[in-house]
Amino acid sequence: MDILILIISAILVKNIVLAEYLGNCPFLGTSKKMDTAIGMGMAVIFVLILASIITWVVQIYALVPLDLVYLQTIVFILVIATLVQLVELFLKKTVPPLYQSLGIFLPLITTNCAVLGVAILNIRRGHSFIEMLIFSASSAIGFAIALILLAGLRERFEISDIPRPLQGTAIGLVTAGLMALAFFGFQGVDNALKAL
């Protein structure tokens, strides 16, 4: 039951982009076209889960025993940057079609704060290994869902009459705000689940 609450909470109620304010730059930057949104969403799911597993292991089995927790930020970002490079090389050599569709998004993921943010949240909330896996996967899926939904809305802006000053990122932000308002409604689901 706790697992179910964790999943629903991370995907819908506390959506990583719309409620926790993480990963907003790629959220607005890659949501103009559906294809790019899907590519970015998939790349983030892949890297975020891998990065969370590795940083969690590094934290528990290296930083804590060695008493180096104050170096967390610098170690985590290095792990993520290296991981992204490795994933890029690996995909290029072994699965070229996947590399072609995700490749251009991979370098951008190093500076996607959702990846580092979820890695740090896993540690700060004291998640166990299983909880970490579920929380990371659900957060990443929540990111992809929000991104794809926004892309669906923004594709329609091309044919709609938007006031000139609001065109581009401005109307994207307002739309994201309305989406966040809609996602607020899921708080009821969370409360209902907890009451069960």
Binding site: Y21, L166, T169, V174, A176, G177, F184
Partner: peptide
């Protein structure tokens, strides 16, 4: 959160 997005969008 919704207020943050809308406020920033309008400022832009």
């Amino acid at each position: 959160a919704p207020g943050a997005f809308i406020c920033l969008g309008l400022i832009l």
